[in-house]
Amino acid sequence: MLSIEQVSELAEDIFYELAEDNLSAEKLDEFDQQAEQIGFVEARDPQEAIWLASLDFVPDPEDYAEVIIGLNRSIAADVNQQEVFARILISKDEDDKFCHILWPEKPAEH
């Protein structure tokens, strides 16, 4: 099984590989410009409701991790707001290449 750190790194690599095709140019530029200062990669147990609605199954936390990639915005002195750029469900089993990404909706191009 992959460690949480390994799962996080793998998810981040996949995010960067696919972001250009799944985020608007403006969102991608925004993330690229601010990720070093306020970006985050957070691995945690999968949230049942989100993945059940998207994939029709409940991922077992023993086998899967949910990795969220985004920006932490300070909106007040003691308040941060997270802007999520990708929510990634990824297998902890290094032989299982399962990965599913929920991206924010990309606006239609004109």
Rank of each mutant, 00 (worst) to 15 (best):
S54L: 15
E9I: 11
A11M: 04
P59Q: 00
D29Y: 13
I38M: 13
S54M: 09
D56C: 08
P46M: 04
D56I: 00
D29G: 11
A49M: 12
R44M: 10
S8A: 12
E5W: 03
D29T: 11
L55W: 02
Y16I: 03
V58Y: 02
S54E: 13
F57Q: 04
G39N: 03
D45Q: 10
I38W: 05
E36I: 12
A43C: 02
D60K: 04
W51V: 00
F31I: 10
F31A: 02
D29F: 15
Q6C: 06
L52H: 05
S54G: 06
S54K: 11
D21V: 06
A49K: 09
S8C: 07
F31C: 02
A53R: 08
F57G: 02
A53L: 07
S24A: 11
A35S: 13
W51C: 05
D32L: 11
I4S: 05
F40E: 05
A35W: 05
P59T: 00
A53M: 05
V41S: 03
F15P: 01
R44T: 07
L23Y: 02
A49C: 05
D45Y: 07
S8L: 02
Q37M: 11
V41A: 01
D60F: 00
E48T: 06
V58D: 04
Q6F: 00
L10D: 04
A19W: 01
L52S: 09
F57R: 02
E36R: 15
I50F: 13
Q34S: 11
L55K: 09
K27L: 14
W51M: 03
E12W: 04
N22V: 08
E30L: 14
A25F: 11
S8T: 10
I4K: 07
V41Q: 03
G39M: 04
V58N: 07
A43M: 01
L55F: 00
E9L: 11
L10E: 07
Q33S: 15
A35L: 01
D45N: 12
L52N: 08
V58K: 07
F40A: 02
E17F: 08
E20I: 12
Q37G: 03
Q47Y: 12
S8W: 03
N22Y: 09
Q33W: 15
F31L: 15
D21N: 13
E9P: 04
A25Q: 14
Q47M: 07
F15E: 00
L52D: 06
